[in-house]
Design a protein around this nucleic acid. Structure first.
Lengths: 189, 189
DNA sequence: GCCTTCATGTAATGAGTTACATGATTCT
DNA sequence: AGAATCATGTAACTCATTACATGAAGGC
């Protein structure tokens, strides 16, 4: 008997609710407004996800209150702490190998919750793991590229350029966070 | 009653079989060896996909022949033509919005099948659509970045850098294809 | 009164994951 | 002979997608 890991969408919804109570419809709109279309805003994804979160006790449904009897969801204390420990999960090699969307989602939410030192640490780990994976893709490229048709080789170069771009981003992000000045506090008030 | 579109994995398998007959296990190994881990090599994904392709009449299963009675699959003529028209599908805006993996998969296979002029055209369309989408993300960034926490803004910048990297890649790939010299032929022999 | 949008859902379908099952073959 | 690995699958489960259903509010 194992605990099934919630999906990325589950954590996205949980995180959005960290900004205050919202209805399912509000959440859908908020996701639909995001320019990077990476998570689904379809009702068939959102509402079942909300039910999963509620079953877990991570969110609670308030009474009908809004203009049309819409029921707002909010984080429970257990939900909040589950969300924070999701943010704090160590960055594994396997996390950076695919599209890395889950890591980015976590990063996007960190600013509102975690102290800057932890965010820095996350970026360092992110850069390290991505660079390590990049090196392995490069090795593969060196050994196999000659045997590929031109477009196959170029597709591999696409992947390499992608991971290079991620490494550069991580470095830049770390620098920007460092330069942002120590004046603003972590998440206390 | 509508025809359901085959999955990316279906087309990947179909494309790999374009290189000659292979068993399910061969296909699994070939996918597992790829450095960019984007498609699943799990038997629970591969074997049902092969059955779907066979049901469509796009691949055929040969008689048991190999060392352990393994049965090799091969493309049928209908499968070959379905694969080529998949390669030739126009690049839509929505195709570039997500991770763009399907487009890259198509591109990787083009070299073995399509004439260079069509590959060039694909890259032009890819660049155009990606640049257009990038512009829309930039507009969103300009208007909303100020209201975001630092990590949210940086996550958006990650997306922007990603799409910039894709545009650069497309330009470079087009140039390399052009420079490759006109001596090798398209796909006739 | 009617139509559109708001708001919340359900149903059917289908793909992918993990884990397990099964037999054959090669290694030692 | 026994173990590992080859090779092909199946079963249970979860999640997402598309499309549809339902009803209430507000504009005209």
């Amino acid at each position: 008997m194992r605990t099934i890991d919630p999906s990325d969408l589950d954590f996205l919804l949980l995180g959005l609710l960290g900004g205050g109570p919202r209805s399912g419809y509000d959440l859908r709109k908020q996701i639909a407004e995001s320019p990077l279309r990476v998570y689904s805003d379809s009702p068939g994804a959102i509402y079942p996800a909300l039910r999963r979160l509620a079953r877990r006790g991570w969110i609670a449904e308030g009474p009908p209150e809004g203009p049309r009897g819409r029921r707002a969801f909010c984080q429970t204390p257990r939900g909040q702490s589950a969300f924070v420990s999701w943010l704090r999960r160590p960055v594994e090699q396997t996390d950076v190998m695919g599209s890395g969307e889950a890591l980015l989602l976590r990063f996007a939410f960190m600013g509102a919750v975690l102290p800057r030192a932890e965010i820095r640490q996350f970026l360092e780990r992110f850069e390290e793991a991505t660079a390590a994976y990049l090196a392995s893709v490069r090795r593969h490229y060196e050994s196999r590229a000659a045997a590929l048709p031109a477009t196959g080789r170029l597709a591999l170069e696409y992947g390499i350029a992608d991971f290079e771009s991620r490494v550069r981003w991580a470095r830049k992000a770390r620098k920007e966070l460092d330069e942002e000045g120590p004046e603003d506090r972590k998440g206390g008030d």
